[in-house]
């Protein structure tokens, strides 16, 4: 494998991860993205999904993020997550609660603005991804 890059994962509450890795798969808003060292500079929005970290040729960590941003430069990737949890710590109950909340938010959308509808949709998709992740073995 060619070299490593610095992966930083931060949420508003704390710094979750900061170390050199070989590859990271990021759930970008328009599809999953595998990032290797030397990637062209990008700023992407994230949707709810799992970040997989590869070190030493093996996937060593899965973290669930429910949206945020990532800044990619050739030598560094910074993920600003709204909230992040290691997949192992994700509970089905919490995921179900998030889904129920998101679905409740979808109810009275006919009268509201397109932006609100978009936001609710994003929240719902993120919650669905959370449930799917929590239920996967």
């Amino acid at each position: 494998m060619a070299g490593t890059f610095q992966l930083e994962l931060v949420s508003p509450a704390r710094l979750l991860l900061s170390r050199p890795v070989e590859m990271a798969v990021i759930p970008a808003a328009e599809g999953e993205m595998g990032v290797l060292p030397g990637h062209a500079p990008m700023i992407v929005a994230l949707r709810g999904g799992v970040i997989s970290v590869t070190e030493g040729g093996q996937v060593t960590e899965h973290l669930f993020v429910n949206g945020g941003f990532a800044e990619i430069t050739p030598e560094r990737v910074t993920v600003l997550a709204d909230d992040a949890t290691p997949v192992a710590n994700l509970s089905k109950a919490a995921a179900a609660t998030a889904l129920a909340q998101a679905e409740a938010g979808m109810v009275d959308l006919q009268s509201s603005t397109p932006e609100k509808r978009d936001q609710a949709m994003v929240a719902l998709l993120s919650a669905q991804a959370m449930v799917a992740t929590a239920e996967a073995p």
């Binding site: 328009e30 062209a40 500079p41 990008m42 700023i43 929005a45 941003f69 709204d82």
Partner: peptide, 18 residues
């Protein structure tokens, strides 16, 4: 020179409130 995905405006619209 960054590339943006989705568009610059959309990211900024989400980034600013954050």
């Amino acid at each position: 020179v960054y590339e943006y995905e989705p568009s610059e405006e959309e990211i900024l619209a989400a980034l600013l409130p954050q």
